[in-house]
Amino acid sequence: MPTQDEIFKVVQETLEDALGVDDDEVTMDATLQGDLGAESIDFLDILFRLEKGFDIKIPRGELFPENLARADSSFVQDGKVTESGIAQLREKMPHADVDKLAENPAVANIADLFTVRMMVNFLNHKLNG
């Protein structure tokens, strides 16, 4: 079973290859879109590479849930994620720092849930149970 550090190394290499970033940019707290410049199609590429790198199958939407803000109208009100929305995010993205989003639940901040740490936590759970 790989350690968290070993998982991080593979994630780091994956993001270097997929996004053309340097290893020192890929820190645990880096956000995929804001800090590393990932675009929507990159998530597909990253998924392919992780599956290959770890020899696992990651069902679509499990690591990178799609259309979060559009899920239903109770999710967002006045540009902010509602309490029910936050609860849904906790369920869908148990490895993301939803507490941080809850402090300032602007819709634009949803993208910041997608961090390197979230990926490492997800893979750690997936690989080590």
Binding site: D17, A18, G20, I41, D42, L44, D45
Partner: peptide, 10 residues
């Protein structure tokens, strides 16, 4: 499927 060029990583 329709196959579209999505990305050239390298």
């Amino acid at each position: 499927y329709a196959v579209i060029l999505a990305k050239v990583p390298k």
